[in-house]
Design a protein around this nucleic acid. Structure first.
Lengths: 253, 253
DNA sequence: CGACTACTTGAAATATTTCAAAGTGAGTGG
DNA sequence: CCACTCACTTTGAAATATTTCAAGTAGTCG
């Protein structure tokens, strides 16, 4: 299963207990906010205990909030459950991304977080981080930034949900994933979707069937090639066009 | 224009330069986070210079980010503009609520903020607030909470946009406004919508016409009484029901 | 008062959903 | 190793909610 995706697993995260110093994700993760001495302090408060198996929860909505988490490998989805019991996927978190910031206000998580595949995370106890933040201005600021970025991501999603068509939504998601891959030094054009069609649909506010149909449509238009979860972007520009409402359909003006 | 709405303007905010101590909003605004001595410090960094006329901007997307703002009176809407020039309303801010947190990550506002009616705001320079936050742990925490609450508000909107029908959306908005009124000690059942149907539709991801139709439908069902921007909730329970997808239509099971 | 913008209402058009069914793939156990 | 099951995905056809287009009404401001 993993042998045929060698090209994707370039990131050397074999060792569970690597310190931030040695972690290949440090240029995009919390460490960017601190200098070498401070990194050690940060390192000291981080717990690296939790490798999750597919389907396991990192935390659940209504759990007390104690830590935030940085994804080291794998993918985590967050979701909440509506009053009437429906699930709403609120985000997908890839390596280097931080989740769990929800719940700071209430001290209780408002989302659940579940591993979509085997995943390793770094746990950062929030109280300790708060103390450290007060001491390290750059860290405080970085933390503010993290939250602010979360807000911006949410607002982009809001825009997407309220203004974009099914095609535009899917295109946007693909681009988002592509971009985030690039940040880790991975291919922008070829990647594996870690989530199911169902999760995609749920996240984007579309029925599963619609997701499926859009994928086939995009493929017929020669913009992407899909094989199950494996995606190859053939026409990046076309995809960009499509993602921000390029009139009706693929007029390469 | 303002004479016939006397019942709504119970909040004594006549004086532009009241300090936080005297502001009737202090139990729901930033001051909740600090003790009396600290309040003075907080007070000192707050600028109360800006009374905005209807239609005026508090800040615009791409403005450098320097301050956050607490609404003192009136209503502010925030919005951003998509790549293709369309406006997306991202929030409505009522008295006691804080806006402008967007832009912390980039140091540039990602939204514009515009007064929907004459509005007074308190400006809180962010750098000074940062310094003060580092000194006053409760303030730092409160600030985290503010951001986190913003995230939660966004996530609720996401849920709404991706799962709810037009009726449910409108019902949710009405309830949200009602709740926020209550926090200020105002009537839960009778209020004036400060925004246009257009803004409502834009915010909720609906066409103006749909908004209009839903209002009339809700009125025919006896759940609300609408007269222009004036809304009276006649059946609060029914409205709640409706807001979280009570099956098809108003089955008071 | 006239011009404008905001709001309402109706009818037709449309994108997406829902329902239904069949295809695919992975994992299990004999 | 094959067969079987279960979950996921794809595809088609009908149903539906919302949008779009169009027109009329009402309230507002100069």
């Amino acid at each position: 299963m993993s042998s045929e995706h060698d090209c994707k697993s370039r990131v050397p995260t074999r060792n569970i207990n690597v310190s931030c110093t040695d972690c290949s994700l440090n240029p995009i993760c919390l460490p960017v906010a601190v200098n070498d001495n401070q990194l050690e302090e940060l390192d000291n408060i981080i717990k690296r205990s939790k490798p999750l198996k597919k389907g396991e929860h990192l935390f659940r909505a209504s759990d007390p909030f104690a830590s935030i988490y940085a994804v080291r490998s794998g993918t985590i989805k967050t979701y909440s459950v509506t009053e009437d019991g429906e699930e709403q996927v609120t985000g997908f978190y890839l390596p280097g991304e931080v989740l769990g910031i929800d719940g700071i206000s209430t001290n209780i998580h408002s989302n659940s977080a579940k591993a979509l595949e085997t995943a390793a995370v770094c746990e950062i106890p929030f109280e300790k981080l708060e103390v450290l933040s007060a001491q390290i201005p750059t860290l405080q600021r970085h933390f503010f930034q993290l939250m602010s970025r979360e807000i911006q991501a949410d607002q982009q999603l809001i825009m997407l949900l309220s203004k974009k068509s099914a095609e535009e939504r899917i295109a946007s998601l693909l681009l988002s994933i592509s971009t985030r891959h690039t940040k880790r030094g991975l291919s922008a054009s070829g990647f594996r979707l870690p989530m199911s069609r169902n999760d995609i649909g749920n996240f984007l506010g579309l029925a599963v069937e619609t997701v499926s149909r859009v994928f086939t449509r995009l493929q017929k238009q020669g913009i992407i090639h899909v094989d199950g979860k494996e995606v190859e972007v053939l026409d990046m520009q076309g995809l960009c066009h499509m993602s921000n409402g390029s009139e009706s359909s693929a007029k390469t003006a």
